[in-house]
Computed example of a mutant assay.
Amino acid sequence: MIAGGPCRSDDDDKCGNGDCPTVYATPEPGVLAIQGYDVTHPTPDGESVVLIPEEILKEAARARRWL
């Protein structure tokens, strides 16, 4: 896990379910796995589009030292 995940407190629970969107590292270089909410958008088989808060991506970028 790079960023996101279980909320630290009720004040931190922006998603309202105790488990926020999460960015995960994968064994494949340059590839991140993203947990988020499904949206209605046509995609090819095996793909999906997820919504995650901008702050989670920024946290992941800082963790990867991209920022």
Score class of each variant (00 low, 15 high):
M1N: 06
G16Y: 09
Y37K: 10
N17Y: 05
R8G: 14
G4C: 06
I52L: 14
I56A: 02
A60W: 02
I34S: 01
A33S: 09
T26G: 09
S48A: 11
P21W: 04
A33R: 13
I52W: 00
A60G: 03
G16W: 11
V39S: 02
D11T: 14
W66D: 04
W66N: 02
C7R: 11
G36F: 04
D38M: 10
P29L: 09
T40V: 09
E55F: 10
I56L: 02
G36W: 04
P27R: 15
V49F: 03
P29I: 11
C7Q: 07
S48E: 06
D45Q: 15
D12M: 08
A63T: 13
G46M: 12
Y37D: 09
T40P: 00
R8F: 01
I52P: 01
P29Y: 12
C7Y: 01
G30C: 11
G46S: 10
E54H: 03
P53K: 05
K58C: 00
A33F: 07
G18P: 11
Y37R: 11
D19W: 07
G18N: 12
Y37M: 09
T22C: 11
M1W: 06
R65V: 10
P29W: 13
A63I: 04
A3R: 01
I34R: 01
A60V: 01
V31E: 10
E55Y: 08
T26Q: 11
D11L: 15
A25C: 08
H41Y: 11
D10H: 10
S9A: 15
C20W: 00
G30V: 08
D45W: 03
A33W: 08
R8Q: 14
P21E: 05
T22P: 00
D19H: 13
P6D: 08
R8T: 13
P6Y: 09
D11Y: 11
K14A: 08
D10E: 15
G30N: 12
W66Q: 05
I2Y: 07
D19T: 08
T26Y: 12
T40G: 07
P44V: 05
W66K: 05
